[in-house]
Structures are given as structure tokens and as C-alpha cells.
């Protein structure tokens, strides 16, 4: 079940969309990049760590800023088209 619990600004929405896209890109790059390409592999590992952190920070920061409703078994989702935040359980 999904319930709308908030809304972010278009700029905030764009920020998380970019991080989301980057995370997906890194994950799919990881499928083809092997450790023998050392420099690029190290760059990938570092980027995955940084992007993951930024991704989580965005949610933490926004949750604090907007004080969205939450639930123990639920998680938040964003609709990139409308910038709406949903609680999904």
C-alpha cells in the first residue's frame, strides 16, 4: 500500500534522481569492470561508496527537513515526475 506523505522541490527531486541514476550506472558498470583494470576499478569502488553515502544523506536530510510520516515496516519512495514522496508498506 502506498500513501502520499510529502513533496520535495524540483531541485531536490533532480538531485536525488541524478544520484539514483548514477548509482544504477555504477552498479551496471561493476558487472563489466574487472580488477585487472586497476585504475578504473579503484575509481569505481570509490565512486560507489561516495554515491551511496550521498544517496542516504539526501533521504536523511529531507526526512529531517520535511518530517515525513514513517512506519517501522515501510519505506519512502519518490515519484520523479511529480516530486511526490510516498510511504510504501
Amino acid at each position: 500500500m502506498k500513501e502520499k506523505v510529502g513533496q520535495v522541490t524540483p531541485e531536490e527531486c533532480s538531485e536525488i534522481q541524478q544520484l539514483f541514476e548514477r548509482r544504477n550506472g555504477l552498479n551496471e558498470l561493476a558487472k563489466i569492470l574487472t580488477p585487472d583494470n586497476d585504475a578504473l576499478y579503484q575509481k569505481l569502488v570509490k565512486d560507489m561508496g561516495e554515491t551511496g553515502t550521498k544517496f542516504q544523506n539526501w533521504w536523511d536530510h529531507m526526512a529531517q527537513k520535511y518530517n515525513w510520516k514513517s512506519s517501522p515496516n515501510g519505506h519512502w519512495e519518490i515519484n520523479f515526475d511529480t516530486c511526490e514522496i510516498f510511504l510504501s508498506e
Binding site: 548514477r22 550506472g25 558498470l29 563489466i32 578504473l40 575509481k43 569505481l44 565512486d47
Partner: peptide, 12 residues
């Protein structure tokens, strides 16, 4: 994918 990442291209 490799080149976009390697070049830090904004399209990545």
C-alpha cells in the same frame, strides 16, 4: 559505459 565513467562525462 566505461568511457562515460572514465571521462567523468555528465551523461554517465
Amino acid at each position: 559505459k566505461l568511457r562515460m565513467f572514465e571521462l567523468n562525462h555528465h551523461w554517465f
